[in-house]
Amino acid sequence: MIDVILKKGKEKAAMLRHPWIFSGAIDKIKGQPVNGEIVAVRSADKEFLAYAYFNDLSRVALRLLEWDETATIDKAWYKQKIKQAIAARGHILNEDTNTCRLVFSEADFLPGLIVDQYANFLSLQILSAGIENIKEDIIAILREELNPKGIFDKSDAGARKHENLEASQGLLWGENPPEFIEVKENGILYHINIAEGQKSGFYCDQRDNRRILAGYTRGKNVLDCFCYSGGFTLNSLKYQAAHVTSVDSSALAVETLKHNLELNGFKTEQQTSIQSDVNKQLRAFKEAGQTFDVLVLDPPKYAPSRSALDRAARAYKDLNRLGMLLLKEGGILATFSCSGAVDIETFKQIIAWAALDAGREVQIIKQFCQPEDHPVRISFSEGEYLKGLLLRVL
């Protein structure tokens, strides 16, 4: 096995079980590893630190897998890790929920592998060259453990570019998924489109937060922004919201939401769908003097990296300022950020600026986070990407 020697003093992160080592920490490489190959990472004193995927084309040159030098990283090793991840989610899947994230990359010691279950189908995102190299083994293990109808590739994320991998999408094994797969979450039915939907097909990371927010919507007039396939909309209607207005810029999202409304038998007069840019629509509501009791802001990732943080902060502030101006006194705002570069304290500060600009007093009622099928390793805080605040706007 090829040895990668770190510069003196650069071994601390690996010793603390952080799974990333950046290219600038490498002193020398004994051999010529190909991208995605497993190498032994050693300190400047030649002490073993971990086994890792190597990629000299990525800023994260080493993605650490295993800290036990006696371990053999083979198909059996991958099978054990995948079985462990699946077993940890076993209690989530029940008669009310048949969709969740089964494998969450670094959090499950498999950097670059994301597996989501949608009823009898699996969706894979492969975001590292190391996992790409053993893709066939991963497919075989998932077949053995879960016996799905089909396994679909959704490896079209921008992260693949950093690993010098091209986007990849299509059937990997089994049956092609139907145009719409019917899944259930919190007792609510959804039609989701794996092939054309965003990311892996459905945002199951808001499962708990949808249910929590719905508890504040009974008899209320709700505005659900960036609604996608309608998670917050449908949960609010289930909890007897008086009316929900749902806004998304995607025609596919709005069409999918309409399918989901029909699927659950909700009355059409209880809901209005608007295909529009959210910021533009919020301004239109303000000009029309329209107000709401409850408002959800669940935008896409504004800060894909720390270099985009300042621009993202301005975008989050303006979005939340507009939202606060539309809420009645004492109204509820559920606001989220899925940008890993924005930590919860930074997000709170952004909300404080938005409140100041809007001239509104705001109380934090609750902090939202990602659910347990998106766990955060204590040694890898970067895995904590989803955060949110439940606010009362006075």
Rank of each mutant, 00 (worst) to 15 (best):
I5Y: 12
K7R: 10
L16P: 10
H18Q: 12
P19D: 03
W20T: 12
I21Q: 03
A25P: 00
G36E: 10
A50M: 07
F54L: 06
R59N: 13
R59V: 14
E66A: 09
T72L: 11
K75M: 10
W77Y: 08
K81F: 06
T97L: 03
G112C: 02
N120F: 09
L122R: 04
I131T: 06
N133P: 11
K135N: 05
D137S: 13
I139E: 01
E144Y: 11
L146T: 05
K149C: 13
K149N: 14
A157C: 10
G158Q: 09
A159R: 07
E182F: 14
V183S: 08
K184C: 06
I192F: 08
G201M: 00
N209H: 09
R210G: 04
R210H: 07
I212Q: 11
T217A: 06
R218F: 10
R218D: 11
N221F: 14
F232A: 01
V247P: 02
V247M: 00
S250E: 03
A251P: 15
L252Q: 12
A253W: 02
V254M: 15
L257E: 00
L257M: 00
K258W: 12
G265E: 05
K280S: 13
L282I: 04
L282K: 05
E287S: 13
G289R: 01
Q290L: 13
P300H: 09
S307C: 06
S307V: 08
A308C: 07
D310C: 09
R314F: 08
K328T: 11
K328R: 10
E329D: 09
G331T: 08
A334P: 00
C338I: 07
G340W: 05
E345T: 12
F347A: 02
K348D: 09
I350D: 04
I350Y: 06
G359E: 09
R360F: 05
K366Y: 14
Q370R: 01
P375S: 08
P375F: 05
E384H: 10
L386W: 07
K387P: 08
G388A: 12
L390Q: 11
V393G: 02
